[in-house]
Each structure stands twice: as C-alpha cells, then as structure tokens.
Design a protein around this nucleic acid. Structure first.
Lengths: 184, 184
DNA sequence: TATTGTTATACTCTATAACTATA
DNA sequence: TATAGTTATAGAGTATAACAATA
C-alpha cells in the first residue's frame, strides 16, 4: 500500500446551479447528506493521512506496513499457518512470504514445521516481536490522537464505533442480494 | 488505486493475557478505546468495501476511478488547468494525461487552448460528461446506502460529519509541530 | 487429486526525468 | 530562466501461473 504525500485538497465547493430540483422544504440534514462528497472520496484522504503518519513510526522501528500487519495479527490471535494469516490480513499467500522472511531474519517471528502436517509451517510471534509491535502501536496511537483531537468527544466515540461496525463487514454484506425483495 | 477483493477478516479478538496493567477501575469507554484496532486497520477495509462497490458501477459506465474523480472535480468546481486539476484530485500532472485523453475522446470533457497563455489548456466538462458523472454518483450513493444502513441514524450523521472534518485536514495539521509546546 | 509453501513471470501502477512550446 | 503539457524510462507492487513436497 503505497500512498503519495500529495495533498488531496478535494474542492468541497459543490455547485448545483442548473440542477432543476423541485424546491421542496427539505430539512438541513437531508440537504447536507445529499451535497456531501462520496464516501470513498472522504475515506481515501483520511487513510492517506493515517498512512503518512504511520510510515515514519514504522521506518523508525525498521518494519514495513505489511510486517506490522503480520505482527499485529500474530500478537492478537493464536498461532496460524501462512495461508490463514494471509487471508486474515487481506493479503495473498505469495505476497507475504518475503515479509515473513524478513520478520524471521529479524527474530520477530518464528516459523516451525507443523508436526501434524509437514507441509505447513506454524507461525508465532517472538517476545522481541511483541515488544516491537507494541512499541509501534503506542506511537501510532499517539499520532492518531492528533487526528481524533479534531473531533468532539461524542463525535470521536461514535466515529470509532461506526468504523468498528463497518470495517467488520464483508463484501457479501453489501451485495444487492441482501435486499428483502425477491424476484419470484 | 487497485484493490484486491480478498476479504479482510481482521481477527478482532484482542488478547492481552500477559500485559501486566494496573487493574484500576477504568470506564468501559476507555477500555474500549484502548483495545480497538488501529484506525488505519479499520479505515482500510472500509475503503476496500467502498471501492469494491464502486468498481462495477464505474465499469458499467465505461469510466475509470480516475476519470470519475476528474469528472467530479470539473463538475463541482470551475474550469481548471491540468496542473491545478491534478493537485485538486491528489494526482500527478503526468498521471492524469491518459485519463484526460480518454475523457476527451469519449466526449466527456473538452480541452481548449487558453487564449491568454498558449501553453495551457483549459478544461471543462461537457453536458454528456455531466450526465455520466451524475448517473454514476446516483448509483454509488445507492450502494453507499447498503453500508450506511448498518449504522443508526445518529451514528450515520455523526460518522459522515466526522469524515467531512477529517478528510479536510492536510498532513501539516497532524504534524507534531502543532503542539502548543515550544523547545525554547 | 488437493493443499501448503515457494518461485518465476508478466502486468499494472507510479515516480522521475527529460523534452517542447510557450512565457 | 521558468512554466504547462507531454512523453519515455525505470522501478515498485501485484496477480497469476507453475512448481515441489506432502496429504
């Protein structure tokens, strides 16, 4: 995930001069929602901001974004095989191999052959890996505070809660098939 | 911005078994906030969800993500030169040229030489371009409803408001230099 | 035959630098 | 000399297919 640092000052000025819309008495909240930018057009800059804030922290600890993602998954969850880990962090089997090699060379994770299935290699985070992960996380949390400080306490709580809800969804949850209507 | 459709079922189970933390009487909200995932780890899956939802819509109208971004900027703002447009959408001068060529060939934008500066080419969206942009937006909004429907009305309002606030920030707004303290 | 981990290849995207034509 | 637009080249990142070992 590479992100350019170019600032995305998406022009927020929305002009609907010649949109002939029935001049009903809409509430402000409805008008607000209609005139807002697309969600992706707002979420993307926020992600770039977050990544830009995280990269220096990661670099200071000599870990890549993928490495940090792997360490996080291994620290939070039980031992995994490479395939399950890859799916857990939304990556590809082939994509994380280089990352795992680096992490192993750095002594942050260990890969031991599975006695029950000699094809598989069981992954686990080392004490040093745990230390690095948590040091990085602490610094990232500090950076996040700069962002969240722009919100009111109530906004902040709701924003994080909403993020937790939405980030847990799978693409299937958004498919049109979930609509109650049936064609038969 | 290419996004794999692999589901990011980030394991949300957080285990702090051996983190010796003073067992004070923390409020639930504080504990919640401490045990949550990193913001980027939540924002990223949300963006992927949104992009996955948008791509089919864009494909149906034969426009790329960058094309839609350009059409949006030109529809919402005044006529721009290519350089200013590029910066407005967070892209690079050289990166959008191919996109502009496609849009021009498709008759969705026009590029006319600037009479005052024969180096520059003034951009403007055509009626057809406006039609496409708004048709795409309407469909994207419909898809977004699937996502936002997972939130309560109050959560939704606050979430969108928070996104508007945060997405308007520039990297400078997050730098450590903004802290009130000085070293001298 | 299917699966785990791995490697190799090709393809996409991006950044950088160079070029032109104007100013 | 500097700038707007363009083009070309190199590099990073990714997906896909193919492979060896094991089930």
């Amino acid at each position: 995930m590479r992100v350019s640092y170019a600032r995305a000052h998406h022009c927020a000025t929305v002009i609907f001069g010649h949109v002939t819309d029935r001049p009903g008495r809409r509430r402000d909240s409805e008008r607000r929602d209609r005139d807002r930018r697309d969600l992706a057009a707002m979420v993307h800059p926020v992600l770039r901001l977050l990544v830009a804030a995280e990269l220096p922290v990661l670099a200071a600890h000599d870990v890549s974004m993928w490495s940090y993602s792997v360490l996080t998954a291994l620290d939070d969850g039980p031992v995994r095989t490479q395939a399950t880990l890859a799916e857990a962090i939304g990556a590809d089997k082939t994509r994380i191999i280089g990352t795992l090699d680096e992490l192993q060379d750095a002594g942050l994770i260990s890969r031991t052959p599975d006695p029950n299935d000699r094809r598989a290699r069981l992954l686990s985070i080392t004490d040093e890996g745990r230390r690095v992960r948590r040091a990085v996380r602490a610094q990232i949390r500090a950076k996040e505070e700069h962002l969240l400080a722009r919100l009111t306490p109530a906004e902040r709580t709701t924003f994080v809660r909403a993020l937790e809800k939405l980030s847990a969804l799978s693409p299937d949850d958004l498919s049109d098939d979930t609509r109650p209507r049936r064609t038969d």
